[in-house]
């Protein structure tokens, strides 16, 4: 069992937990992920690592409630435990493995959308620990959904926050901020790292291709084992089939077939939706929602 030593609600439906997992905390690197399973009947759910404390043996995860499983997970409290917590999985971010002088020679732009701020954070923190100042754009639908702003501000060179509805800081999409920085403020970037919803990553890539900035994205397809044995997470990158869990989750964004990846993400959508509604509304739900197949 893997004890939860801290459980916090960061925003509406977004939760942060510090979990005791000494082997993972010792070995993990920015860019990698874990798979958690809360109890006997639970699903295996992939989550990117948000932070780690090697000495205390803690790993921080952040997740959003999107279906029945994550809704059940959200009810876990400090002192509860996950039955399973596996990792680290996937490949670390490219810069972790590269010559540090080469990394220092580049200008990085990080773009975090929604819960994507969680996996962006350890990467930016790693940069700060190695003396590299990077620009970070953080976007959220609205002010109340913005997470880890203070944490990111503490490790970023510059932090640009934007909300879709303008309820906080700038108004607009992250892509508008990128365009503004590059075209109006004269910023130049050698690498962009964009992590967030698939649709956001797709549009960031479209723009950075136009602007000529090589871009890395972190994909979040459906996974089961997370160790390369099933291919549920397969994606097409540069015309080749890759397993995101072992070849990724980070890929060259300009090579990713986003449309296919988004369609594959929908595979269990109705089932998840049904299970979620069953869980949330229990006996009070009598159909008519168009999701659950129940009697109207």
């Amino acid at each position: 069992m893997y004890k939860i030593v801290k459980a916090e609600c960061l925003a509406d439906k977004i939760y942060l937990m510090d979990v005791e997992a000494p082997r993972v905390a010792k070995a993990c690197q920015p860019g990698e992920f874990v798979i958690v399973k809360m109890d006997e009947t639970g699903e295996r759910i992939p989550l990117t690592i948000c932070d780690y404390d090697r000495e205390k043996g803690l790993v921080t995860i952040v997740f959003q409630v999107v279906g029945a499983s994550t809704l059940r997970m959200a009810s876990l409290q400090e002192g509860d435990a996950f039955q399973d917590f596996v990792g680290p999985l996937g490949q670390p971010s490219e810069f972790v493995k590269e010559d540090i002088e080469a990394v220092k020679g580049r200008r990085y732009l990080f773009v975090a959308g929604g819960v994507g701020s969680a996996p962006v954070y350890p990467q930016v923190k790693w940069m700060r620990e190695h003396g590299i100042d990077v620009d970070v754009i953080e976007g959220a639908k609205t002010k109340s959904l913005l997470i880890l702003e203070e944490e990111l501000r503490a490790v970023a060179g510059n932090l640009y926050v934007t909300t879709d509805d303008g309820s906080y800081c700038r108004k607009g999409m992250v892509t508008e901020v990128i365009r503004d920085l590059v075209e109006n403020q004269g910023k130049k970037y050698d690498v962009c790292v964009a992590i967030g919803p698939m649709i956001m990553m797709k549009f960031v890539c479209k723009l950075t291709k136009e602007l000529g900035i090589p871009t890395i994205v972190s994909l979040n397809p459906i996974m089961v084992d997370g160790t390369g044995m099933c291919g549920a997470c397969r994606v097409t990158v540069g015309g080749e089939v890759k397993f995101a869990c072992v070849d990724g989750p980070e890929f060259d964004g300009h090579q990713v077939d986003f449309d296919q990846a988004m369609k594959r993400q929908q595979m269990y959508k109705t089932e998840e939706g049904r299970a979620y509604l069953r869980e949330q509304e229990k006996e009070s739900h009598h159909g008519g929602c168009g999701m659950c197949g129940g009697e109207a």
Binding site: G231, A232, Q266
Partner: peptide, 20 residues
């Protein structure tokens, strides 16, 4: 590690490895 055939349409929804 499962093998796939490499034929068109293999990444479509509804195609699984037996392992999965």
């Amino acid at each position: 590690l499962p093998k796939f055939m490499g034929i068109p349409g293999e990444n479509a929804n509804g195609v699984f490895s037996a392992n999965e």
